[in-house]
Design a protein around this nucleic acid. Structure first.
Lengths: 129, 129
DNA sequence: CTTGACCTTCCAGTTACTGGAGACCCTATC
DNA sequence: GATAGGGTCTCCAGTAACTGGAAGGTCAAG
């Protein structure tokens, strides 16, 4: 399979696939002409990576997940621990964003948004009041 | 004021303050010895930036907010529009993260997390089922 | 005069790609 | 055989917003 085919089937851009090879996540075979020659197994790995990335796992976490996936003797506890840690990070991020949103929403709500210069948003950022 | 004082009073690391000067957000005076000499106005700007950044505004948005703040004749509508746009972006991000969290939480919930290799998290990432 | 804390600049690294340049390869058509 | 068009290759640079560290100048105290 050429890279364009794999890109389409995995949903990842060709650029990203080359990048993933660069950082050692995949090792597609090569043809005599230098073109990458992807096997079904490579495609599966890429799809796996795409899904893990879409769940917000970092590349390094994906590397670990991939290793666990390929390790027939892994303990599911290891996977769960990794996922739970990531879940906690996501929750923390959500809380952080909600804090921002609440503050910002309140500021936006109190801003007249007209032609006059008075603006509670700027006043707040300036530390007034 | 030396940079360490401003760093402490603004809550921003000295490194960050130098960076902000680098990208033109502030222009502190210089002493003969080359040291930066911050005025109260610089400190206020930095505190403003710190608050705007903590609300998740990007550096370029901060640059615009700063310009609006310093423009006595600005219309509050301009500020509100900027803030509203950012608020929408935050909301979108929250929704995205909540989607991730829900999926991930469900996977984690169904994973035994024991010594056995069977793991629904990996199965899902692998596209099985 | 030396020590130690500050200050300076500049360079490199971080995350996960993305865009683009220049060049090679393959297939089809004329 | 020449050419046109895609597809592919590698490599370099840039993104956001810092952060760490090296090498070296400055300042106040003892």
């Amino acid at each position: 399979m050429n890279i364009a085919t794999v890109a389409e089937r995995s949903g990842l851009p060709a650029k990203t696939i080359r990048y993933y090879e660069d950082i050692g996540l995949i090792r597609p075979a090569r043809r005599d002409n230098g073109y990458r020659d992807f096997a079904e197994a490579d495609l599966h790995k890429l799809a796996f990576l795409g899904r893990a990335r879409s769940l917000g796992f970092s590349i390094e976490e994906c590397r670990m997940l991939l290793a666990l996936w390929e390790d027939r003797s892994r303990a599911s506890a290891d996977v769960k621990a990794l996922a739970q840690k990531h879940l906690d990070a996501i929750d923390a991020k959500i809380v952080e964003l909600q804090g921002m949103r609440d503050t910002l929403a309140s500021l936006v709500h109190h801003c007249a948004g007209d032609h006059r210069p008075d603006c509670p948003i700027l006043s707040d950022l300036a530390g007034e009041g």
